[in-house]
Every structure is written in structure tokens, then in C-alpha cells.
Nucleic acid binder design. Structure first.
Lengths: 117, 117
DNA sequence: ATATTTACTTCAACAGACATAGTACGACAG
DNA sequence: CTGTCGTACTATGTCTGTTGAAGTAAATAT
């Protein structure tokens, strides 16, 4: 079975996370579940990868964190939520353009090779 | 201008190199020029990245090196050529399948995010 | 004669992914 | 009321691939 290797997805972890945060602020555990479901279990982000992405992106100003209660009544343990910033949005859009370019370039090589087999 | 970042292409340097070696054995300088031209100057592989990829892939058995003269008469400086192995071919094909999967997954996130903007 | 192009090599540093381990709270079963 | 499971993280150290900086040296162009 074909699996997505980390070196391939490496450049897109941030983009995936940001695409989820564009819809609504969210937190670690929830985002990891969303990545699983959106990708049909094809990609499961590692916890450490996810949380270190948060740290990095917050430092870069792409996301902002805030703590909040899991439900409106204020019960349960507080979570660390993240929301996307203006800079994060710009970064996300850049990454989408970059993706289009990358896709085109990689595909040229793959096509070039595939015709030979 | 949009540029391909190294973190994005990271997982595909090996695949690109192998796609070139599938057509014919080649050597560093030539391969780097081919990557430039096939990608329309959009991606220029760094020398050290290329040569370290050779070392790694040879160690993994994906390619084999041999030295040869640049032309049949034996003039000029000898070059280190590389040819793809059976294992390298299998690896290349795997990478191509992986690419299809990755493309699909990444696109789902990018589409999901784009509809929101 | 000298500069540029070709064709590499060595080495140290860095970033991001990941394994391992641990903390801690809440819910629910036995 | 004890234990396990799911949730929600944090800390630390290692590994891999990329890269910058620098150097070597032959061939070719000016």
C-alpha cells in the first residue's frame, strides 16, 4: 500500500493546518482529527509535528493562540486554540500558488520518466 | 514571484534525478542543467543537494556510479556517471504512486481552504 | 595569460519531522 | 473508588535532507 512519506508532505503541514484554521479557530487534537478525516485516513499527522508547527507558526506571526473553555458553560479543561492572522492568510495564499507551480514542475518529471517505462 | 521552496520539493529531488537517469545514465553537471531546463528555470537544484542525493541513493542501491571519459576518444576529464538500478526503478515507481496520492490529499486541503476566502 | 565554465568534494550548520516519554484532566465501567 | 481510556498537551533528543561556504582542478574561451 502506498503511503505518504513525511519528506513529501513536509512542505505542506503548515498549509494544511492553515487551511483548517481558515474556516474557524481550532486546537491541536481537533485539527489532527480533521487532517485524518479530510485525507480519508491517508495522512495522520504526528502529535509532535503538529504542536511544533503551532509553535513555529505562532513565532512567525501566522497564527495566534488563546485559551478557552471547551463549551460555553465554562466546564471542562481549558484548551489552547489557534486562529489564523492576516500574515497567515497571506502566507497560506502564497503556499497555494507555490503548490500549483510545484505540481506542474514535478509532473513534468514524472511524465517524462513514465513515458520511458 | 512565486518560487518553489526547498521544503516543498524536498521529497522529490530523488524522484526527479531518477526520472532523468531512466532515460540514460548521466552525471552531476548534466543532470543539474536538465532539471533547470525541464522546469523552465523554475527549479534550480543546489550542487550540494544533488551530490549528496547521489551519495545517498547509491548507498541505498538505487543508482550505480561508474567513471567514463566525456567522449569516445578518451579525451578530457573523466566524469562520474550514474545509472539507475532495478531497485531504483522500483523506488521511482513507488514515488510516482506516492505522488498521485499526495497530490490528491494536498489538493483536498487547498480546495477546502480556497472556498472560504 | 587569465577568466570562465565544467565537475566535483568536504564540512559544518540548520530546520522540520519524529520517537520516546511524561503530565494531567475528565468520563465511564466494574 | 479504582482503573482504564480518550483528550490535550509538553519536553527532549535524534535523524535526515538541504544548504552555505569554501576549496580543488581540469578544460575551454577570450
Amino acid at each position: 500500500m502506498v503511503e505518504i512519506s513525511s519528506d513529501v508532505i513536509r512542505g505542506y503541514n503548515d498549509t494544511m493546518i492553515l487551511s483548517i484554521l481558515m474556516k474557524a479557530p481550532s486546537y491541536g487534537y481537533e485539527i489532527s482529527k480533521q487532517i485524518r478525516s479530510i485525507s480519508d485516513e491517508k495522512y495522520v499527522i504526528k502529535e509532535t509535528t503538529l504542536y511544533s508547527a503551532f509553535t513555529r507558526m505562532e513565532k512567525n506571526g501566522y497564527i495566534e493562540s488563546f485559551t478557552a473553555d471547551p463549551d460555553p458553560e465554562g466546564k471542562g479543561k481549558k484548551r489552547t486554540y489557534y486562529r489564523i492572522t492576516e500574515a497567515g492568510l497571506a502566507y497560506y495564499k502564497e503556499k497555494c500558488e507555490e503548490w500549483d507551480l510545484t505540481k506542474e514542475v514535478v509532473e513534468r518529471f514524472i511524465d517524462a520518466g513514465a513515458t520511458q517505462s
